[in-house]
């Protein structure tokens, strides 16, 4: 039986190799995948998020931890699906049309994954049709839009409007963020939530899912 605390440490320290190795050992020893996620990986990513917020961790450390977590998650996902486990929510995320800035969006996606959400990342420069398609295909209940440029902020509005026209707006909560986005702007375009950092985005998503 491996020392499971080491999984927590590996995610916290961004050590993908160890995270994957411990996960494999744990699965071989019959540990419940859900236990690995809930008791070790989610708390580790929570800690990563708070270290990021208090500027002890920065973008590189966050990316490393996210990668470690993903390595482990890849092994667990098929098992979870087979066992019929439900994710905290199903998220479709992307940087809007015309914008290539994806570092912040990637961090939000990873933190949500670390927080137990199922995340479909559509990448950068994503047109509204792609969001609609993904919401339908994944039966998503959260859409996350990121924009870093003033010239692409209007594409957030266009995307929300397109969700409405396609008749899927009611089934999802829309979260927005990125450097120039403000809570006022989020209100104006009819988004359901805004956060200025990846760590708080997880709390926000949990809250929005509860509201249903």
């Amino acid at each position: 039986m491996p020392e499971l605390q080491k999984l927590y440490d590996a995610v916290l320290n961004g050590d993908q190799k160890t995270a994957v190795a411990i996960t494999q050992e744990a699965l071989a020893a019959g540990v419940d995948p859900m236990e690995l996620i809930t008791n070790y990986m989610v708390p580790a990513m929570d800690k990563v998020g708070s270290l990021f917020e208090c500027e002890e961790y920065f973008v590189p450390e966050l990316l490393l931890s996210a990668r470690a977590m993903k390595g482990s998650l890849e092994l667990l996902r098929p098992l979870l699906a087979a066992a019929g486990a439900q994710p905290a929510g199903r998220v479709v995320i992307g940087t809007v049309k015309g914008d290539l800035h994806d570092i912040g969006k990637n961090l939000v996606a990873s933190m949500l994954e670390g927080g137990g959400f199922e995340v479909m990342d559509l990448g950068a420069d994503v047109p509204p049709e792609k969001f609609i398609e993904a919401v339908r295909a994944r039966n998503a209940n959260i859409v996350c839009l990121s924009a870093l440029l003033t010239v692409t902020m209007p594409a957030m509005r266009t995307t929300i409007d397109a969700l409405k026209t396609a008749g899927v707006r009611e089934q999802v909560k829309v979260m927005v963020g990125g450097a120039p986005v403000t809570p006022q702007f989020a209100d104006e375009i009819g988004a359901d939530g805004y956060s200025d950092n990846a760590s708080a985005a997880v709390g926000l998503a949990r809250k929005l899912v509860k509201q249903g």
Binding site: G14, F58, V59, P60, E61, L63, L64, R67, D102, I103, N106
Partner: peptide
């Protein structure tokens, strides 16, 4: 790769 570069500055 952008993310790989940022990670490399730490790892």
């Amino acid at each position: 790769d952008v993310a790989e570069w940022y990670m490399s500055t730490a790892s």
